[in-house]
Design a protein around this nucleic acid. Sequence first.
DNA 1: AATGAATGAGACTTCATTCAT
DNA 2: AATGAATGAAGTCTCATTCAT
Lengths: 201, 201, 201, 201
Amino acid sequence: MTAFADREGARVNGKQAPARERILVAAEELFAESGFDATPTSRIAERADVPKGLVHYYFRRKSDLLAALIKRLPDEQIDPARVVVPGDIAESLRRLVSELDARLAGSRMLSHLLWREADTHRAVRDALQDRFQHLVREVKAVIVAASEGGLAVADVDSAAGLLALAVSYRHSVARHAGDDPPDLMERELTFIADALMARPR
Amino acid sequence: MTAFADREGARVNGKQAPARERILVAAEELFAESGFDATPTSRIAERADVPKGLVHYYFRRKSDLLAALIKRLPDEQIDPARVVVPGDIAESLRRLVSELDARLAGSRMLSHLLWREADTHRAVRDALQDRFQHLVREVKAVIVAASEGGLAVADVDSAAGLLALAVSYRHSVARHAGDDPPDLMERELTFIADALMARPR
Amino acid sequence: MTAFADREGARVNGKQAPARERILVAAEELFAESGFDATPTSRIAERADVPKGLVHYYFRRKSDLLAALIKRLPDEQIDPARVVVPGDIAESLRRLVSELDARLAGSRMLSHLLWREADTHRAVRDALQDRFQHLVREVKAVIVAASEGGLAVADVDSAAGLLALAVSYRHSVARHAGDDPPDLMERELTFIADALMARPR
Amino acid sequence: MTAFADREGARVNGKQAPARERILVAAEELFAESGFDATPTSRIAERADVPKGLVHYYFRRKSDLLAALIKRLPDEQIDPARVVVPGDIAESLRRLVSELDARLAGSRMLSHLLWREADTHRAVRDALQDRFQHLVREVKAVIVAASEGGLAVADVDSAAGLLALAVSYRHSVARHAGDDPPDLMERELTFIADALMARPR
DNA sequence: AATGAATGAGACTTCATTCAT
DNA sequence: AATGAATGAAGTCTCATTCAT
């Protein structure tokens, strides 16, 4: 590990990360900060500290950068066993949200980017849809496991959809708010959990 | 007056709308279709069927167009009396959503635009926040009126927040889905209404 | 006479000056401040407080404004009798310079403008040359009158040329200096006067 | 070296000068000919025979071109020993003026440009002031050396100031005259020299 | 006489992309 | 593999000038 401080992500245990990697990191940051269109490739090169030509050497067109970024999306499955507290839906969901927060912390910017560019770039749109569906399924799985059966499918679907929406909103669009009180999430979460508990089985 | 149909909004009973108005309509459409940055002012002029210079005559900078668009946002209050069915929260919310759909139909594109550009343009971000809060308050008012009192404030807040989120999502981001099944909304709506009914008072 | 204060020169004893005059005054100021090319006619209209169309109504092309400005140049002859102190060249020149200062004070901006635009506009160039020659002749006349004859023509020409140069420089280009110490002029002036006195006759 | 005559400065012994240099030369010529504002970058590209984009590749903004031009100003000191004829101020000044003429011949246009743009561009104004002061000092040094001491400081200052003015005027603004008779300078020069000689010591 | 909407040429500038080295 | 000069299309914006009223 050198004595020089450096860009987050630009170094991998002591050595400067390879140029290609540095370019991707820089692109992700800048796209998230200013949007795809508003980010010149020259500024990406600058931030990655590589010559301008190298960006197009690795990614012939600018959109190839976006495509490469999407491929890098973290896509780990959260193991329901790690978060589920049988019989306690609220607590289970609470832990799930916490895990999701942790998982997405590393790619919050990218998540956010997705929402912005979904319109103009089909690849992005599809990736976004996939991630959302994936999220819904994860929530559903946790609810089912925590409830130990007995819930109506439609209710689970509704609940999972609403929570996924809230989480997703929080992770991407809502970050504008600045405040983002943690209890806000808590409030919705318990409301949903209680609602499920109150349903006739 | 020709017999030809024309751009939506570009004509006002037989006469071509004033140039300024045509420019705004064209800008709204194009911004929503392709995003702010990706829309050249020249294409706006083209679609509005005005010379390129006129766009900048009325709106010196491109961002002034965005600002003008935001000022035009419909902002009518929905009268709770028109949608509330006392004692029936679900039906009340159903009618409210229906009204909201109607209201936003005219500016769906603009709504969508807001979500996309919220990051880069502070004016947009603020407008977006305002609209969302406005929406939450409307939902809350309907719930309170329909429930005839007796609900916990926190529950109303949660429910209103979730429904506003769902409506908002549907009106803007969700349009990617293409299909947008009406019953999807119905499912979330009844889930929320039932949840409220089931709560201890 | 209204209670409103107004632009210097835009009012003529209590009444607002006619629009055409206000336009000329505004143009003179702005051309001198920012240069001919850098001054949009729209800003002239603005400062003159007239509608944009009126500027081109009175002066079809922008260059017509310049031409009209040149025609307005003050061109009064300074009466040698008023400044000459017979036998005292230095004092005579001192008084002349003082008169010239007073005369040009009213049109300092315009004088300055002339130097800047002389290149690009033939009419300006010619006016500038004329004014300079006029100035040389005035200086010459004062020297001749003050010296009561007996100086060599070549010396008078040289002296007049040099002083005219210094005065001209001071009135136009030199104004950049900011400081512009009065004694600086005095120094050159006495140098020239003494030189003339010391010449063999 | 080809048989074709070519733009002055655009070729360096047979090979075309580098693009960046050609751009600077073209800009200098055009700015001097028509002024800074009146010269489109497109015409600079045209004359330099480079694509339009290259001008902005090397000089992002048009004003950067002006700045670069100013840095290129020749700034060699003239060695007093080369021009001074001890005891003969007039001849010394004559030789100095001749040297100055030679030195400035290469950048006459640029000199001229400076006077024109001094108003609107601070960098130019400062450069101009510096050059003038530099010139005054050079003249002063020659006078002192040629006179072999014994002149009053104030007289030397006056004389140097006047001659610098005349030289400067000739090199820049005066070029309008077209004719520019060499003896005109000679006349002022001897007048000044004689004046100094005649002064009491 | 006066006005301000309208026009279109053209200015500066940015930028993705290519290419010779 | 890597570089940075070079290219030209396209974008935003300004402005003198015209013209219908």
